[in-house]
């Protein structure tokens, strides 16, 4: 059933929609960075990898947490308009 949704939105609603897009994208980026060590194949490289790889993973982890914390307040209480429309 075709509900009537405005085709274009005001600046604030538009921002909020894009914020949601960012929130949806975040785990995708996170997944990529977490899976990246597979491509490094640490057991085949000659040098010891545990310490640098561990640092890498924790840094990515920390940045993801920061990003999620930055996004979360904007996503709260955004239920005044529904998900339809763009």
């Amino acid at each position: 059933m075709a509900r009537r949704v405005p085709l274009f939105l005001k600046r604030r609603s538009y921002r909020r929609r894009r914020l949601r897009d960012a929130a949806r994208l975040l785990p995708v980026f996170g997944g990529f960075f977490f899976l990246l060590p597979i491509l490094w194949a640490p057991e085949q490289s000659p040098k010891p990898d545990t310490a640098p790889d561990g640092v890498y993973l924790f840094v990515v982890w920390f940045l993801l947490i920061l990003a999620a914390a930055a996004l979360a307040p904007g996503l709260d209480g955004g239920s005044d308009d529904d998900d339809s429309g763009t």
Partner: peptide, 13 residues
């Protein structure tokens, strides 16, 4: 721990 992290930062899904 990484799996749950992805689920939680992707809570909007």
């Amino acid at each position: 721990y990484l799996g749950p992290t992805l689920v939680f930062i992707g809570w909007w899904w």
